[in-house]
Amino acid sequence: MEGMSIIVKKVSQLLAGLIFVYGIYIILHGHLTPGGGFAGGAIIAGAFILLILANGSSALNLKKEISGSSNTESLAILMVVVLAMMSLAFGVKVFFSNFLPKGEPGELLSAGVIPLYNIFIGIEVAGAILTIFLALVIFKEESSK
């Protein structure tokens, strides 16, 4: 896939970091404001997709990236299930129980394990959307050959 003009490249490089940080903000404040893992993860994936679209990439690089993103995704979703299982070991013996201290409502560090779930789900969603995007791009590259 070819890149775009120098203006697009430069602007996207400037914007991508900003979008990335905004995604992290949405994920970390998931238990306080609207948003959370899915929305933030989608934004983070958007930052990566913007960079790839603007700068272009060879099929070889894309294949390397897709294995990385799919590994990250599997690892993150595995961590979510492990977190859910961890609550079987701590405190009350139930699945998905909130075993950490709850803290004050409205604080950043509160709500027990929910921010942790948000973080891992954010990584998972970012990885998954990036994987889907890369897979479709690779399909298209291969069929246009």
Partner: peptide, 13 residues
């Protein structure tokens, strides 16, 4: 539900 889910993602990894 949990065992097949875990094994699916472990297999991928």
């Amino acid at each position: 539900v949990a065992i097949p889910l875990i094994s699916a993602f472990l297999i991928v990894l």
